[in-house]
Nucleic acid binder design. Structure first.
Lengths: 152, 152
DNA sequence: AAAAATAATTAGCTATGCTAAGTAATTATA
DNA sequence: TATAATTACTTAGCATAGCTAATTATTTTT
C-alpha cells in the first residue's frame, strides 16, 4: 500500500511538472522569437537555415526529415533561402534526383547573428538569477535535451 | 580583479544556459504539439481557445493582446472558433463596438481534452526520471515561469 | 525491357501572420 | 451642439508555411 501511494504521488508530480514545463516553454519561446523578426526571415526559413549551417551540406530530404516537415514544404522553404542568397542547391552527380544544400557565407552570417540576438535576449532575462538558480536551470536544460532531443 | 573575473564567468554561464534552454524549449514543444493535431484545430485557434476558456469571457481586443497578435488576425481566428461551435461572440450592450467572447461547453471540452493529451504525452517522457530529477525540473519550470510569463 | 521505387517539384487547399483601409460607435473639443 | 478625433472591430489583400495529390525525372528491381 505504501508503495502504491508513493507511485500515485509521483505520477501526480509528473503531471504537475509537465504542465508547468509546457507553459514555461511556450512563454520562453514567445519572448525570444520576437528577436527573429530582425532577420527578415520567417520562422521556418530561419530554422531550416540553422540546420543547413550546423549540419550541412545535406540533401533536401534529410533537411525535411530533420525539421519534421514534408518534402514539398521544404522545397518551398529552400526556394526562399536560395532566392535570398542564403543557401545554394546542387544536384548530385551520382544520383541526379538528389539535391544537396549548403549555406552561403551570407547565410551563415545571418544565422549566427540571429542566434546571438536570441541567446543574448534570453540571457538578459537570466540576469536576475543567482549562481545557484542558474545552475538549476542548466541542469534542467540538460535533462530536457536528453529527454526530447532526437526522440521519436 | 577577482570581482571582474567572476562577473565574466557568470556572464558566460548565462549565455550557455540560455543557449541550452532555447534548444530544450524548442524540442520539448515540437514533440508535444504533435498531439494537438487530434483536435482538428490549428495552433493559433487552440491557443486562443485556451485563453478564452481559462481567462474568458473577455473582449476580442483583450484576447488579441493576450496572444500578442494584431486585432485583424484575432478576428479571423475567432471566426474559426465560432464557426466550429467552440466559442460565441456577444456585442456589448453599453459599448456596441466591443465584442465579448465566451467558450461554449463544446469548446471547453475540446480544450480540456487537448490539454490532457499534451500534458499526458509530456508526462510520459518524464517517466524515466527519478524524484530528484523531477524536482529539479519543477524548480526550473517555476523559475522560468517567473521570468517569462507576462513579461513583455 | 518493363515495372517499381525514390527524390524532388508543382499545383492547390487551409491556416496564420501582417498592414492598410473601412465601418460603426463613442468620446473629446471648438 | 456639431464636428473632430479616437476606439473597436472588420474587410481586403499580401506573404509564409503546413498539408495532400499528382507529376517529373531518375534509379533500382524484376
Amino acid at each position: 500500500m505504501r508503495k502504491q501511494a508513493r507511485t500515485i504521488r509521483l505520477a501526480l508530480g509528473r503531471v504537475a511538472v509537465a504542465d508547468r514545463l509546457y507553459s514555461a516553454a511556450i512563454h520562453l519561446l514567445r519572448g525570444v522569437r520576437k528577436q527573429d523578426v530582425a532577420t527578415g526571415l520567417g520562422p521556418a526559413q530561419l530554422s531550416a537555415l540553422s540546420v543547413v549551417v550546423f549540419a550541412g551540406p545535406l540533401t533536401l530530404g534529410e533537411l525535411a526529415a530533420a525539421e519534421q516537415l514534408k518534402a514539398p514544404t521544404m522545397t518551398r522553404i529552400v526556394a526562399g533561402l536560395e532566392q535570398k542568397g542564403l543557401a545554394t542547391r546542387r544536384i548530385d552527380s551520382e544520383d541526379r534526383r538528389v539535391v544537396h544544400l549548403r549555406a552561403t557565407a551570407k547565410g551563415a552570417r545571418v544565422l549566427h547573428q540571429a542566434r546571438r540576438r536570441r541567446i543574448r535576449s534570453l540571457a538578459a532575462r537570466l540576469r536576475s538569477l543567482d549562481a545557484r538558480q542558474l545552475a538549476a536551470l542548466n541542469r534542467a536544460a540538460y535533462l530536457l535535451e536528453r529527454l526530447f532531443h532526437r526522440a521519436r
